[in-house]
Design a binder for these strands. Structure first.
Ligand code: FES
Ligand code: FES
Lengths: 137, 137
DNA sequence: TTAAGTGTTACAAATATTGTTACAGTTAAT
DNA sequence: ATTAACTGTAACAATATTTGTAACACTTAA
């Protein structure tokens, strides 16, 4: 459910959020996070499309924060980094079974409800709040 | 978060739960679920250790339900099929950063709280309740 | 005694994730 | 205007994870 794009994207955006004036290149982030620059750009491009950060091409370019970090939450990062809803990889099974007909449907309902609860929880954490929580430790 | 052992295990145990007298072999389940018998046995052996089902070796053997299906919940199946708690695959990053020091710790706290909420939700669904819900559709 | 099962390990194949290369486009500085 | 330092993307390679297979010891019923 939580994939590593989430961790990577969050880590990056927190780094940008921590200093509103910072303009970090994918190469800089890359060496900080020990992850390939191209992957950084891919993940950050989603955040860019969502309007959470901006990027500047060319020499002296890079990425910088462009959102209200009190408003953007972990839920936002979560949705951005997860294409499909949480879904059990159901195995195709005999449609003749009384069970088979509905099990996938039922699981989908239950899991998407659970996912909703999960996201509700994440929604309570703005980037700012996460940053604050880190200070307190 | 939800892996396919969960779906596979749940599907199997529901099949057993649906008929208390049924004794299904891994081979039968295998052809119903289109999954290799050995994998079925692996997943079911966990359920056996937990006491939710029993198995009988030798000719005429197989798996059958041995728990109160009003009591065993999706949470139980979930715990059984997930070794680690939900954990963000954090990338090792410079421990010199003010952020780096705590980001992993904070994420762990937040995610394990969220996981708890998620499991609380799953705990509401007993196997019986899932079976009932399937009838209603 | 044999056929039909489970239990478990070791290994192979398939799939998914991650890294790499390549290159077109953009910008700042010289 | 040329160059160096960037982003944006796509195609491909390497790695890691998941899933399937084969092998074999052990158990039980017929
Ligand atoms: S095998 Fe899925 S219910 Fe029949
Ligand atoms: S790179 Fe993770 S916080 Fe420094």
């Amino acid at each position: 459910m939580i994939n590593s794009d989430f961790a990577l994207g969050l880590h990056s955006i927190l780094l940008l959020a921590a200093d509103k004036d910072a303009c970090l290149t994918s190469s800089t982030l890359s060496s900080m996070l020990k992850v390939h620059p191209v992957r950084i750009r891919k993940v950050l491009s989603k955040m860019k499309n969502a309007g959470y950060i901006e990027s500047k091409e060319g020499a002296g370019g890079g990425f910088f924060i462009s959102c209200n970090i009190e408003k953007v939450t972990l839920k936002d990062i979560y949705t951005l980094t997860h294409d499909d809803l949480m879904k059990a990889k159901c195995h195709s099974c005999c449609p003749s079974c009384k069970i088979g007909v509905n099990i996938e449907k039922v699981l989908d309902i239950i899991l998407s409800d659970a996912d909703e609860k999960f996201q509700d929880y994440l929604e309570d954490y703005s980037l700012q709040k996460v940053l604050d929580k880190m200070q307190q430790m």
